[in-house]
């Protein structure tokens, strides 16, 4: 019974947030090129949504693929061939390689020598997700990296305020 209320609150918070930004929100501000590689979609999408490569620079994806044995605490290792394939795709489409507007918005917060691994720690993310704790506590959310809990078209690269 609480859920619609909370959802409405979240929506108004999101609305308030985007209205506070000086520039009017254009659709392309909320869009990033989606994952188009089947293996990347399948393997990276196994336990979580396959995040778009544009959210991190190429060196971050290299570090990610180097560290799959301890992937945020989980063993996410793949065969060497699959690892190489996915690494090539992610680095070729990284935010500092193929920049869309949203990717550039994320990249401008990354230091020249920075190797971020968590997209959710980027100030561009935090700026848009400054919610009250009860929004994060919604049972379907679980964690801030669960884009699909609120952005139903996230896998298609669309992060409009749902």
């Amino acid at each position: 019974m609480m859920t619609p209320m909370i959802r409405a609150t979240a929506a108004s918070l999101l609305l308030a947030g985007s209205m506070a930004v000086a520039a009017p929100a254009l659709a392309e501000d909320d869009w990033i090129p989606p994952v188009t590689d089947a293996l990347t979609q399948t393997e990276c999408g196994d336990c979580h949504m396959a995040f778009q490569p544009g959210f991190l620079p190429a060196r971050s994806w290299d570090a990610m693929m180097d560290g799959l044995a301890d992937h945020f605490g989980d063993d996410a290792t793949l065969s060497p061939a699959d690892t190489a394939h996915i690494r090539a795709y992610l680095t070729a489409n990284a935010g500092d390689v193929r920049g869309s507007e949203l990717a550039r918005d994320y990249m401008r917060w990354v230091r020249p020598d920075g190797v971020p691994l968590r997209i959710t720690e980027n100030p561009a993310f935090l700026r848009e997700h400054d919610f009250r704790p009860e929004v994060w506590d919604r049972p379907e959310v679980v964690t801030p990296s669960n884009c699909l809990a609120c952005h139903r078209d996230a896998e298609r690269g669309s992060y409009e305020d749902d």
């Binding site: 336990c47 979580h48 699909l148």
Partner: peptide, 8 residues
């Protein structure tokens, strides 16, 4: 089900 770590 739902992944307890990722929410997927």
């Amino acid at each position: 089900g739902r992944n307890a770590k990722t929410g997927r």
